[in-house]
């Protein structure tokens, strides 16, 4: 995908002095080769500080170039490489191999259609995001200078500004797994970020959207989302705050 690496033909790093070898089992899927997904094992030499993303690079660059996954920043900022690692959603660039044991299972995130290997179709996820109108909505006259906000007002929604849209939360949600009509945790986090922003006037509208049959009331409070978030956002809490705002009609 986005792998553009300059040093392609150099000596495989880590092979000589590597500390240990781990088995990485990847859920492979390529509809042009096999209509079924299969597990494939790779023996990967890893160094002490390696992240899982480094192990995947080892595979892609030195063992099997057909392995397909998304990554861009490699430092937990862009949100490209959320995957199901040993059964839980994590960013491959943020988990250390040393914390994962000797056999590591890597699967695509659940609930979205797999396109190839670890790459899923993110469109339903983005569709839910767009549906909550994730942009500033204002009314009245345009101020002549910037829209000021107190530190306290800014702190109110600070947690939900941290989202990098990796989809780890939404694809860890059992309600989303069985019914992708549900908005999912990420869209609610995105809405929360504006609903509780003192400069925004669209709260009512967004609350109405989330009051929908497929909105916040489908949340079962399983906390999978909070557990999955690589940014440490208290996702379930944000969802509960939206529910509370709906019940009491205030923010």
């Amino acid at each position: 995908m986005t792998v553009t690496e300059a040093s392609s033909a150099v000596q495989q790093p880590g092979v000589a002095g590597h500390l240990r070898t781990v088995t990485v089992k990847v859920r492979r899927y390529d509809p042009e080769v096999d209509p079924e997904a299969n597990w494939q094992s790779f023996e990967v030499p890893v160094e002490k500080g390696d992240r899982l993303l480094d192990a995947l690079h080892q595979i892609k660059w030195y063992q099997d170039g057909s392995l397909t996954f998304r990554r861009s920043c490699a430092h937990g900022v862009c949100g490209s490489d959320a995957m199901r690692i040993n059964g839980v959603n994590r960013l491959a660039c943020k988990v250390l191999v040393k914390d994962l044991g000797d056999e590591i299972l890597v699967e695509p995130i659940k609930g979205l259609a797999v396109l190839k290997d670890l790459v899923v179709d993110m469109e339903p996820f983005f569709e839910a995001f767009r549906a909550v109108k994730p942009f500033l909505i204002t009314s009245g006259r345009e101020p002549t200078r910037e829209r000021l906000q107190s530190t306290k007002d800014r702190a109110r929604f600070d947690d939900t500004t941290k989202c990098i849209m990796c989809a780890a939360c939404t694809t860890s949600c059992p309600v989303f797994w069985t019914d992708d009509a549900y908005f999912g945790p990420q869209a609610i986090v995105a809405a929360h970020r504006f609903i509780f922003d003192s400069r925004d006037d669209g709260a009512r509208e967004r609350l109405e959207i989330l009051n929908d049959k497929e909105g916040v009331w489908r949340c079962r409070t399983t906390f999978n989302c909070t557990d999955a978030c690589p940014r440490g956002i208290e996702v379930t809490k944000a969802i509960q705050e939206v529910k509370r705002a709906l019940i009491f009609r205030r923010r």
Partner: peptide, 29 residues
């Protein structure tokens, strides 16, 4: 792939889906 995403005008109602009642909220409470 496909068409470019369509973003609705800020103050338009979301087409379809919403039934405009508070049924799910009352059921939850």
């Amino acid at each position: 792939t496909g068409d470019l995403p369509v973003i609705e005008a800020p103050r338009s109602r979301r087409s379809g889906g919403g039934n405009g009642t508070n049924f799910e909220m009352y059921a939850w409470i």
